[in-house]
């Protein structure tokens, strides 16, 4: 099956199996291994990317469903010299330890903040991140980081 997707601003034409998942296409075909796979029942959120402007679990999207879509992964939002405010806030607030859930967590958090129009409080952030599991941080610093990034993203 031929698909064409735009990933991090770059259009890609790929021949993939009909049963390919978006997560596998990103990781194995495009080498974008920042998108992680942590479960098989669509709960952990390590694989979250943006697809046409919405945070989705890329392990639960068929490649065919992403045909024609704009996909943004963790590799597409910033780099060490020019971090996205959410990336910077995660570092600043020690919102990660082992780093495995972090890409999905950051992608979810960006979508959450963007949709909320700067109005999130702690409870909203906790509710909004219920689709992302972190085993290291106890979420305390993640919540702090997202609230801090909300301010930074407003002023950015």
């Amino acid at each position: 099956m031929e698909i064409s997707i735009t990933v991090n601003g770059r259009s890609e034409a790929l021949d993939v199996p009909d049963n390919a998942l978006l997560a596998d296409v990103l990781r194995e075909r495009l080498g974008l291994t920042g998108t992680h796979v942590g479960c098989d029942t669509s709960q952990c959120g390590a694989c979250v990317v943006h697809m046409d402007g919405a945070a989705v679990k890329s392990c639960t999207v068929l490649a065919g469903q992403a045909n024609g879509a704009e996909v943004t992964t963790i590799e597409g939002i910033g780099n060490p010299d020019n971090l996205h405010p959410m990336q910077a806030a995660f570092r600043e607030n020690h919102a990660l330890q082992c780093g495995f859930c972090t890409p999905g967590m950051i992608m979810s958090a960006i979508d959450l903040v963007q949709k909320a129009d700067g109005q999130l409080d702690e409870g909203d952030v906790r509710d909004g991140l219920e689709g992302n599991l972190c085993r290291c941080t106890g979420y305390h610093n993640i919540v702090k980081a997202v609230l801090a990034a909300q301010d930074d993203m407003k002023s950015a």
Binding site: S42, A54, A55, V56, K57, G128, G131
Partner: peptide, 9 residues
């Protein structure tokens, strides 16, 4: 329903 990602799909 579910979580944010489930609701987006």
């Amino acid at each position: 329903i579910g979580d944010a990602h489930v609701r987006n799909r």
